[in-house]
Every structure is written in C-alpha cells, then in structure tokens.
Design a protein around this nucleic acid. Sequence first.
DNA 1: CACAATTAAATTGCACGCAAGTGAATTTTG
DNA 2: CAAAATTCACTTGCGTGCAATTTAATTGTG
Lengths: 159, 159
Amino acid sequence: MKAQTAKTMEIPEEEKRLEKQLCFAVYATAHAFTRAYKPILDRVGLTYPQYLVMLVLWERSELPVKTIGEQLDLDSGTLSPLLKRLEQSGLIKRIRDLRDERQVIVSLTPKGQAMKAEVDTIMTAIGQAAGCTLEELGEMRDMLHRLRANLGRAGLAGG
Amino acid sequence: MKAQTAKTMEIPEEEKRLEKQLCFAVYATAHAFTRAYKPILDRVGLTYPQYLVMLVLWERSELPVKTIGEQLDLDSGTLSPLLKRLEQSGLIKRIRDLRDERQVIVSLTPKGQAMKAEVDTIMTAIGQAAGCTLEELGEMRDMLHRLRANLGRAGLAGG
DNA sequence: CACAATTAAATTGCACGCAAGTGAATTTTG
DNA sequence: CAAAATTCACTTGCGTGCAATTTAATTGTG
C-alpha cells in the first residue's frame, strides 16, 4: 500500500494517537491545576503564575528577575508586567542592583512574607484532591521532568 | 494558636513540597510542549491551541462549537475568536445550525482536510523526542487523566 | 581608552484562557 | 400558549506567554 522509503520512517498509528493524547493531557491538566487553585488564590488576590513567583520568593526572599525567569521558564516579557502587579499589590519591591544596574533585584515586603503563612493555612493538599498516593505524585513529577527536559533539548526541529 | 477543628488536618511538609513541584512540573511541561511543537506548527501557520482544535476536527469533520469546547475543556470565550481566525485562514467554515439556531456548526474546508496529511508528514514523534517508551507515555497519559479528573471534581474548594 | 558585542529589563503586538455580561433561540413551567 | 428559565455563542476586559524590538549598562577587543 505504501512506498517504503528507507528514510521516511513510518510512525505507527498507535504511537501517533498516544502522542496526541499525551500532549492534550498535559495541556488540559495544566488548566485543571489553574482552575483548582483559583478559588483559594482568589482569596489572597493572586493569579496562578503570580503564586508560582511567590513560591520561588518564599524559598529565597531576594532574587534578580533573570533568576526567577530561569526557575519558572518565563522571560521578561511575561515577568515584567507580572512583577509590576505584585509590586502594586505591595507584596514585593523591585530595586536596581547597585553592583550591576542592568539587573533588578526582586525582594519580598513584610506583607509578601506574611502571605506565605496565610497561603499555607488555607492551601489544602492537591495530592488528596487528586486522589493519588505520594509515591504516584513523585513518579509523575519525575516523568514530567524527564519529558520536559527532553522536549526542551530535542524539540521537534524536524526535517 | 488555632482552634482544633477536627477537620483542619496538618499536611506534612514533604507532601506540600511535592505538590508544589508537581503543579510547577505540569505548568512547565505544558509550555515545553507548546514550544516543542512551535517550529513545526509555524510552517503551516497554526498555533498550538489551533492545532488541538484541528486534531478534534480531523477525527470528526463537523461539530458544534460546544462539543469542541467539551473535548478541549475550553469555553466559547476562548473558542470564538480562535475559530474566527481558523475561518479567516480558510481551514474551517462556521454555519448556524438550521435545526437549532443557537448553535454554530464548525466544519472542515477541503484546505482544512488537506492539512491533516501535511501535518502528519512533517510531524515527528514526540515519544522519540521525549526519550520515553510507549509504555511510559501511556502511563503518563493515564496518570494525568486521573489527576485532571480528580482536580476537576474535588477542586480545592477548601474550607 | 574607544567601540563593538553582549546582557538585563522593559515595551509592543498578538493569541490565548477565562470570568462576566449580552442577545438570540429554545425549553420549561404554570 | 405566555412568561420564566436555560442554553449557546459572541463580546469585553484583564492577565498571562512569547517573539521581537528598544534602551541602558557591562564586558570584550583592539
């Protein structure tokens, strides 16, 4: 039925279906997370990406924009306006680094620090909501890390 | 410190860390997928969400907007402008259902049909790029499905 | 030291994603 | 059958994501 060009490796129909299912599963799960967190984050006035930035800052209360971007895989085009909103909310400060004035150092305000405790209090366990064991959560995280690393490296540069 | 409402169960530190890692892993992997597909989709002039809509239509070439939304977990606020762009690209048609004039039926044009073959040709295997076995891909899809379903049901309605 | 190359943030433009509201058509109900 | 409730798509407004450009500061080079 089909020519067998040695190069054009035919991808099995099953594998193609699986890929499509996976790329959609990741896409839809990411949105499901955002929606699941929303009712809680609404109470403290954070969006989901803003929450991720706060998570990074709660680990290390003072970081340049670039480092935050590396941790979250986001560029300044996304972070600049987002950080400006966090600053307007009084959660962070942005100060030009005196050593290197190209950089902007982001740091938590007392209000931003305090929010960590508040969020910890109202945040329930996703693991429980998700009906997964701790082991499964860890497995999934590892698989996703591997998947992401390889997607980043290999990409789909294609022919 | 706080009243011990029997309900307020303390969540172990380790579990909280794991949750954060997982919610970020899903978030970042979704973006990695989008970036991985981009070089290929650029060649045919589709964005990633547009590609997902086309995937749905290639399975079933005629569907109401609502059904597409259900399959992709998107509402009309996202789909309406997206579908308008696909129509302007000449890939789909949108026609009011005569039986029920509230609905709009989306269908593929010949050009939209033809694009399936083209995309199939240039699309390489994510599985290979991702360095995962078929079995692992399947596992991950199942885990994500479960996770998503439970996130959707339970949400984090919280106290 | 001057000048090109590089780097960090910010800005601009476009496309989602989603809440909230609108308007038209259909279904439900009294 | 008429009024109320519901459904479907569209629109508006806001906050991401990201490519591409801009601006300012630093580094590298001759």
